[in-house]
C-alpha cells in the first residue's frame, strides 16, 4: 500500500544561522526525546529543501505522524546550544501544493 505523506514548511526563529545538518540534528533529537527510537522509526522524516539564508526548510513525514512532528518541532528551544524556535508555516499533501501555499501567503 502506498504510504501517504505530508510536507511541512518550517521557519527557524533565531538570530544565528545553521546548516542543514545542524537543523536536522535538532529535529531528530527533539523527536527522539519525545517518542523514542520506535517512534522515530515510523516517522519517515526527510529533509526536502533547506535555505540557511532565509532560515526556511521543507521536511517530509508520514501523514499519520504529522501531529507528533508538530509537537517535536514545537519543543525545540535550541539548535547547536544556541537559542532557537521552529514554527510550522504550512502543511500540505504534495510538494507542489505546499510551494503554491507558501507563495500565496508570501511568508518565508
Amino acid at each position: 500500500m502506498k504510504v501517504k505523506r505530508r510536507y511541512l514548511a518550517l521557519k527557524i526563529d533565531s538570530t544565528e544561522k545553521f546548516d542543514s545538518r545542524e537543523f536536522m540534528d535538532a529535529v531528530w533529537s527533539a523527536f527522539l526525546r519525545l517518542y523514542g527510537e520506535y517512534g522515530a522509526s515510523r516517522v519517515g522524516l526527510a529533509l526536502i529543501d533547506y535555505d540557511a539564508e532565509k532560515k526556511f526548510a521543507i521536511i517530509r513525514v508520514t501523514h499519520t505522524e504529522t501531529t507528533k512532528v508538530r509537537a517535536a518541532v514545537a519543543s525545540i528551544t535550541e539548535i547547536m546550544a544556541k537559542p532557537a524556535a521552529v514554527h510550522v508555516l504550512k502543511v500540505s499533501g504534495t510538494l507542489r501544493a505546499l510551494r503554491k501555499k507558501i507563495n500565496a501567503s508570501g511568508r518565508f
Partner: peptide
C-alpha cells in the same frame, strides 16, 4: 521570551503529549 512563544496549533500538538484529543 519571544523564543518560547508557539503558534496555537503547535500548542495544540504539544497537548497530544498528555493525550488531550485534538
Amino acid at each position: 521570551t519571544e523564543l518560547l512563544m508557539r503558534k496555537p496549533l503547535e500548542i495544540a500538538a504539544l497537548t497530544s503529549l498528555f493525550d488531550l484529543d485534538r
